[in-house]
């Protein structure tokens, strides 16, 4: 299980659910709003996904299909080219349709021990949007429909990866059933993976990749834990290599997460969606594929 090779005939599915409720306008780390930090993290993940499929010229191989569902005042797909009838788009479309590409000055090594200033491309697909409540159940139900349809069309692919990023409590009911239903959808390579990251501006203790709910502070955290999938072994290995203590049965779940942890969480949770699947989780310059 969770070993299917990812290639153009057998792509993977990556679906991000982004909380866009009003509370996301609160400050998070570094005097930046949670919505802005989250948008930055999501844009970074999408950029990384595109680069993994880029060969360094105008080719982008469609190794996976990507969707981003925002939920707040409105709930729906937010990527350019996606809509309710087409919530997932091939990664090549993602590559060619950012809202804009910002230019950011950065210093990089010059190879002679010094630094040279250059300009880096920072594509933007998602801008912060903070309005309305937190209809998490609606978003999860929509996600279940999307992955269910996708699995029917891709029975031999690596199972869909659904990443839910939120700062609050669902305002449209208990998300447990909707979350479980996503995890019930499967390809021949395993059940869909639902990972949840709860972000917080509070000073509460950050909990990352727990294997049980004993240390969780409240019912809301336990609910999200219950609908978070156990990390496949190679993802657990990647999390361990990133410095997180990982016990057997560790789940793809963050609670009271700060910005750095969310970025690492997204990285670990999406690295399966690389051209050759889990085998390349631990390297970015491998000769195999």
């Amino acid at each position: 299980m969770y070993e299917a090779e990812i290639n153009r005939k057998q792509p993977a599915c990556l679906l991000l659910l982004i909380d866009q409720s009003y509370s996301m306008s609160e400050q998070w780390d570094s005097d930046v709003s949670k919505g802005q930090q989250l948008a930055t993290a999501v844009n970074r993940v999408l950029s990384s996904a595109v680069l993994q499929c880029s060969k360094g010229d105008d080719r982008v191989y469609d190794y996976f299909e990507v969707g981003v569902l925002g939920y707040g005042l409105d709930t729906g797909p937010v990527l350019h080219g996606s809509d309710a009838s087409r919530p997932l788009v091939p990664v090549s479309e993602v590559a060619n349709n950012p809202r804009r590409v910002d230019q950011v000055p950065r210093k990089i090594p010059d190879g002679a021990g010094g630094l040279v200033e250059t300009t880096l491309n920072m594509p933007v697909w998602v801008d912060p949007l903070t309005n309305g409540k937190t209809p998490m159940v609606q978003a999860l139900r929509w996600a279940e429909q999307i992955v269910s349809s996708w699995c029917g069309q891709h029975p031999d692919s690596f199972p869909p990866i659904v990443l839910n990023l939120t700062d609050g409590v669902s305002t449209d009911g208990d998300p447990t059933e909707a979350g479980k239903r996503i995890q019930d959808v499967a390809t021949n390579d395993g059940a869909s993976l639902l990972f949840n990251a709860h972000i917080s501006a509070a000073q509460g203790k950050e909990i990352a990749f727990p294997a049980n709910s004993s240390a969780l502070p409240n019912e809301h955290a336990s609910t999200l834990f219950d609908i978070s999938s156990v990390l496949p072994s190679t993802m657990a290995e990647a999390a361990s290599q990133a410095g997180y203590p990982i016990d057997p049965g560790a789940r793809g779940f963050l609670y009271n997460a700060h910005a750095t942890a969310v970025i690492e969480f997204l990285d670990i949770g999406t690295r399966a969606a690389t051209p050759s699947g889990l085998a390349e989780l631990t390297t970015s310059a491998d000769t195999g594929e």
């Binding site: 950029s47 595109v50 680069l51 880029s54 360094g56 105008d58 590559a95 594509p123």
Partner: peptide, 22 residues
């Protein structure tokens, strides 16, 4: 050889990461 012509943002960024071979 690889930097000729105009390239999309992802190609520019990818090239900055460089290449490798055995």
């Amino acid at each position: 050889q690889v930097c000729s012509g105009s390239l999309p943002w992802y190609a520019q960024t990818k090239l900055l990461e460089g290449s490798a071979a055995t």
